[in-house]
Amino acid sequence: MVFCVGCKTSGNARPVGAVEEIKAPLGLPLVPIPADNPPTAQTIALGRKLFYDTRLSKDNTLACASCHNPNLGFTDGRSLSLGVGGMSGVRNAPTLLNAAYSPLQFWDGRASSLEEQSADPIANPIEMNQTHKVSVSKISGNPAYKAEFAQAFGPGPVTLEKIEKSLASFERTLLSGNSPFDRYEYGGEKTALTPGAIRGLAVFVDPKRGNCAACHTIHPAYALFTDGRFHNTGEGVNGEGEFNDLGRFGQTKLEADRGAFKTPTLRNVALTGPYMHDGSLKTLKDVVAFYAGGGDSNPDLDKEIKAISLSGQDRADLVEFLQELTGEMPKNAGPPGKE
């Protein structure tokens, strides 16, 4: 592994400002906050600035926002993302909206927190391809950043840990709820969903029909539309029943995790195509058809994935429902200075 060796932070840096409350919109639960990184106005602002800063890539062409574009639901609209020099990545850029709730980060869950996740793409050779040492040096060489880091963390040098914590705190503010679904389900607004979407919701939750909610969970008080776990749907399997990208197996080496990837949230899914970890499905209609057909067979196919008898109307209703999961976009999440 090329990353997270020697880059584990010691956890010494602590934000010094007043703790900022991150309010969860309708339909979302309280945001989990790590004890050693309470969000402050200063760290959030700093994280936001770093998020849009191309200095974090080797050739100063890419920022985090290049693949997590706020205008595309914090994705890039591509099947596979492009790294520096136009190098193609191997997976589809996931949305950062509501990533704060995910117990594990990345499609394969290789990071256990946003702090651990945030600097990984910077050093990844097929993404921003810049060593952490160079990133720290580029950022600390900038007087404005030096001052902002001092305000956020107190006196001392700019460190990787402070960069990670700032980016993570900004990411924690990228919440999106209060969608038509939320207003219908949690806001008591019975006209918030179209009749087709209401039928689609019924198919979505019915274990005998769509059974989508088995993994894309809906809680009585909130909905993340993900169980945060890893499942093999068969996506990416070849003719021999094997996977080029082994997904979660790469982390756990458990046979059952072969070809398994994290359940993505379905919030804002109408904005985040193309779909699946390899971006191989273009439209929501394709995705619904993929699951109706029972995915792609392979030895480790998740037991919940099987052919479902859904009428054309059921499938159309499901798509209509998914389109009602587009929530309000978080405020102050675009490039700094462009509120």
């Binding site: 090329v2 050779p125 097929i126 070849n238 080029n244 990208d245």
Partner: peptide
């Protein structure tokens, strides 16, 4: 994202 070496190794095994 997944580092290249492992990906290539998998590909090589498949081939």
């Amino acid at each position: 994202m997944r580092p290249f070496p492992l990906f290539n190794l998998c590909l090589a095994i498949t081939l």
